[in-house]
Design a protein around this nucleic acid. Structure first.
Ligand SMILES: [Zn+2]
Ligand SMILES: [Zn+2]
Ligand SMILES: [Zn+2]
Ligand SMILES: [Zn+2]
Lengths: 141, 141
DNA sequence: GCAGGATTTGTTATAAAGTAACACATGCCC
DNA sequence: GGGCATGTGTTACTTTATAACAAATCCTGC
């Protein structure tokens, strides 16, 4: 959180109350949250009750690398890197929706270069591994 | 298409009229199609007009490796491998929604092994590179 | 301080994507 | 041809996401 605030100051981004609240909410949740779950929290805090409020805050956080959208779940998680420039991969538990962020394998370069050779200009890469986390595996599939 | 029919016979899968129609539709479309676009075609062919009709056919095709869901788009493409067992990565044009299927980099193994070492059992991996295809890049961003 | 532009918020309404549930039909095995 | 699995038709609904536009707020240069 501190890191995020610092990153926003450094980049002259406005971490408004709603945005800060959403980021804190994501940081405290240990699972991916849908926009509507976030919206519930916002409503509870009196910061807005309509979908666009949640989507706007989330869009801001994602655009500035403070949060990530997990495509597989249509849900969001706080970034664990405090917003520094980075490419990430995710381990997504299909049972509890817990998400671990890891470094994007260097080997992905190969894919990008190959694509470029074929005329395709890669801008972003989504890597999401779905499976079962430790706790869920022990608890039974 | 021939390959898909053969694969279904070999695996005792029922490629019913609706399923075959959806697969053909995807094969002929050179872009990813949403479930509702598929549904429109189905309706046009008199094969059903309600969302579950499209989703059931698509679920069948995806479950059996004859089509893939592009998470980034919430849309579907026919597999270019005729259903043989395989892990794929995708190059997704954000402008025209054209999708190219490529082999999943062998290096992804590293990610999977690393996850396993951390107690996470990977079952499937989604790799989608988003960017601009050759044609769209030339036409201007 | 304050005009004027850019950004952010509040709100309504609507679009798009996906699923639950259940009755009915169809194929398949014996 | 009885019984069971699989597939279909349909209704209704949930979840996810955006368009559009007016009001408020912030910044910047004067
Ligand atoms: Zn991150
Ligand atoms: Zn889990
Ligand atoms: Zn494929
Ligand atoms: Zn394109």
């Amino acid at each position: 959180m501190r890191a995020a605030e610092a990153a926003c100051r450094a980049r002259k981004l406005r971490l408004t109350p709603a945005r800060a609240f959403v980021l804190e909410t994501l940081l405290e949740s240990h699972q991916a949250m849908t926009a509507y779950e976030v919206l519930d929290r916002l409503a509870g805090a009196g910061l807005g009750s309509q979908p666009p409020v949640a989507y706007r805050a989330l869009d801001f956080l994602v655009a500035n690398g403070l949060a990530h959208r997990i495509e597989r779940l249509g849900a969001f998680v706080a970034c664990t890197h405090g917003g520094a420039e980075h490419a990430a991969a995710f381990l997504v538990c299909r049972r509890c929706r817990r998400v671990a962020e890891t470094a994007l394998p260097r080997a992905m370069r190969g894919l990008i270069d190959e694509a470029a050779a074929g005329g395709f200009a890669v801008e972003t890469v989504v890597v999401e591994a779905e499976g079962l986390c430790d706790a869920c595996r022990e608890a039974g599939a």
